Computed example of a mutant assay.
Amino acid sequence: MDVTKIASDLYASGFDWILQNPGDAFLVVLFFTVVLAVLGVAGISGNRGAVSRRLAGDTVSVGGVGEGPRLRYESRDGFWNDLVGAIEKRVPLIDEMNRSLIQRRLLQAGFAGPGVVRNYYAIRFIMTVGLPAVFLLLAPLFGISLSNQNVLLVPLALCIVGLYLPSFWLSRRIASRQRAIREGFPDALDMMVVCVEAGLGLDAAFNRVGSELVRAHPALATQFALVALELRAGKTRSDALRNLGDRVGLDDVTGFVTLLIQSDELGTSISQALSVHADEMRNKRMMRAEELAHKLPVKLTIPLIVFILPCMITVILLPGIIGIMRIILPALQGG
């Protein structure tokens, strides 16, 4: 029995089936592409909160009082990890030169865990390969001839889209998360000032503020909870605070971290330093709101000119135009 001949016959029959049933083949490829993408996103999302792995990998409530943010680490060993491992054996997914940069961006987006970088590159690879394949199977359904050279540029464009779309989505998520943390940071500082002035230490203040901000600012509460967990795990206060600045990536948080580290090293009053910094953050938030309000008239100019001004000109000039068409034009033609 010739195994090579049998394999070639099966390949040829499968290719003929694709040509005869392009619609069914497209649905099959689309189904597997969507399933792989969903599994990849679930694999990244399921690895959040890797710091709490030291607490036996179970769900942990951070904060001694009240219900704190719940951090969880889940190890996912299944079809997705097997698929990524099979792909890695044939294709070098991870760019080692940019690994630390991607890992930092994933942390800033809220994804943490040992496999998030690999899952990110796997999703990008699947989208880069899957989008052109879906188009090539979909094109015959719409009567598009693949022999045209201009049509062949579309798969190349889809490859580029699949390559850069995950990075674009990650940037948007980082910006959204940083915006939420920036808006809630002054409130967190005010609560921290109250806690420190009431007699709590800085470590206990992080615990308390993290547990109180779960509903109002969950992203910021998670970051404070991670600081509390790192301090309980034995990290120094300066290292835990620097990790907070790296995870968030905001200048406001970096300034706050620097302030606390310097106050701790120099022995100055943390309560007074936090009060001054909280006033500054509150003023900066008010200035950002005033800046957005001042930009509003300028942004409204374009829709006013494009949509409202033509309507106003039409309403004003239309009676005169009708009068000219009814009276002056017939008089000129009769003369």
Rank of each mutant, 00 (worst) to 15 (best):
K5I: 14
A7M: 15
S13Y: 08
F15A: 14
F15T: 15
I18P: 13
I18C: 13
L19Y: 09
A25C: 09
A25L: 10
V34H: 04
V35A: 11
A37G: 00
G43I: 05
I44G: 08
I44E: 14
G46Y: 13
R48S: 03
R53E: 07
D58H: 11
V60S: 00
S61Q: 05
V62G: 00
G63V: 03
V65H: 11
E74P: 00
D77R: 15
W80V: 04
I87M: 06
I87Y: 04
P92N: 06
L93V: 08
L93G: 00
D95R: 06
S100E: 13
I102C: 00
R105Y: 08
P114T: 06
G115L: 09
V117Y: 04
N119E: 14
Y121S: 01
Y121M: 04
A122P: 12
A122R: 10
F125M: 00
M127W: 06
L131W: 06
A133N: 06
L136N: 02
L141S: 09
F142W: 02
I144R: 03
S145N: 03
L146K: 01
L156W: 02
I160V: 08
S167Y: 07
L170I: 08
G184C: 02
G184P: 01
M191W: 07
G199N: 05
L202Y: 05
L202R: 13
R208N: 10
P218F: 11
L220F: 07
A221V: 04
T222F: 05
R232T: 08
A233H: 12
A240S: 11
L241Y: 11
G245L: 01
D246A: 07
D246Y: 06
L250Y: 02
D251I: 03
V257I: 06
T258Y: 01
L259M: 15
D264V: 01
E265L: 10
T268A: 12
T268K: 00
T268H: 03
I270H: 06
I270T: 07
I270G: 01
Q272W: 05
S275M: 09
H277Y: 13
A278F: 10
D279C: 03
R282Q: 12
R285K: 14
L292P: 12
H294W: 00
I302N: 03
I302C: 03
P303W: 12
P303C: 10
P303H: 14
L304M: 12
F307M: 15
L309M: 15
V315Q: 09
L318C: 07
G320Q: 15
G323Y: 05
Q333K: 13
G334E: 03
G335N: 12
